[in-house]
Amino acid sequence: MNPWDVFTWLMSATLGGSALLIFGYFLRDLPGMLGRDEQDTSGGVREGEEMTDDEAPPR
C-alpha cells in the first residue's frame, strides 16, 4: 500500500475516533454544565475551579 494511503487511513481514524470520543465526554459533562446554575448562585464551589476569592471577577 502507498505510504500516503496509510497516512490517510491513520488520519481518518484519528479524526473520526477523536471526534466521537470527545463527543462522548461532552455528553457526560453536559448535564453538569447546564445544571450547575442553582449550585453557583447558592455559593457552591465549581468543580475544577482553581481561582481564589482574591482573583474573583471584577464585574
Partner: peptide, 16 residues
C-alpha cells in the same frame, strides 16, 4: 459541538 462531530466524522468517512 454537533457541527464539530459532523465535520470530522463525515470527512473521516468520505476521504477513505
Amino acid at each position: 459541538t454537533l457541527q464539530f462531530v459532523l465535520m470530522c466524522v463525515t470527512l473521516a468517512i468520505g476521504i477513505p
